[in-house]
Amino acid sequence: MDFFKPANLEELLLKMQESSENRYLLAGGTDINVQIKNGLIKNAEVIYINHLAALNGIKETETEISIGATTTYFDILHSNLIKKHLPYFQASLDFFASPILQTSATIGGNIANGSPTADVMPLLLVLDADLKLISKSNSRKIPVSDFYFGYKKHVMKPEEIIFKIVIRKNAEEGYQHFYEKVGARKTLTIAKVALAGLKKEKSGKIKEIKLAVGSLNEFARRLPKIEAYLLGKTVTEIDYNKIDELLNLEITPITDLRSDKEYRYHVCANLIRTFLNQ
């Protein structure tokens, strides 16, 4: 392994300008070290970034909360700022990984690694979070829903890094919320299915609805067809056969060592029903 530890953010961004076929950024190490152990990452160029203060920490502006890419889940779970403005987000993170992994695992790493089961993604999708990507010459903000385009494939240019995750302070204000991760046990489990949801009702009708799933496609995604169908409906007007039909168009569950596609499909349909009836 070729190893580089930049002195500061400038040096990191300068290094990222150099072309590299096999480059990995090392933050908490909870994904990369498993891949190294299993021989999936070999002879790589590793750039260490966990010591860079510019990439770490939770900050607020008048309207937004920003979470630096190398902020750990431990720090997010213990942040008073997150507790005050994004309590649903914070409470939903509680059973991620395990208490002894939350201390290392970073939110930026969770996103950059790009696993379809990444626990944080359904939440960021319903919160309409943005990602701030930076390179030496450029900086851009993209909706988190635009980040992936295939299995472990994302839109970052080789010279770009995830700088921070930005969530509006009122992103969950006034919404009924739902988050359920289904696995073989509570902690230390990789989700078979995960559903995050936010909804607002007015005079009994669904006024706003946001649904996002993980572990059911090549990458986590919203369910726009089901959202569109539900808008303006009362609970009794919802036709669940129609939802099942639309769900078939939106998810492509697979059978693997953790579960099978039929189970995943049915559990997802049931989670949606549970949320809509709550």
Binding site: G29, T30, N33, Y48, A97, S98, I100, T103, S104
Partner: peptide, 23 residues
């Protein structure tokens, strides 16, 4: 990182030392 047999405290917090690089 799935069994905890290698847990140590790093700056006072528990980590799985099999997933921590010495850097």
């Amino acid at each position: 990182g799935e069994c905890g047999a290698c847990t140590v405290l790093l700056d006072g917090k528990p980590v799985t030392s099999c997933l921590v690089n010495v850097i």
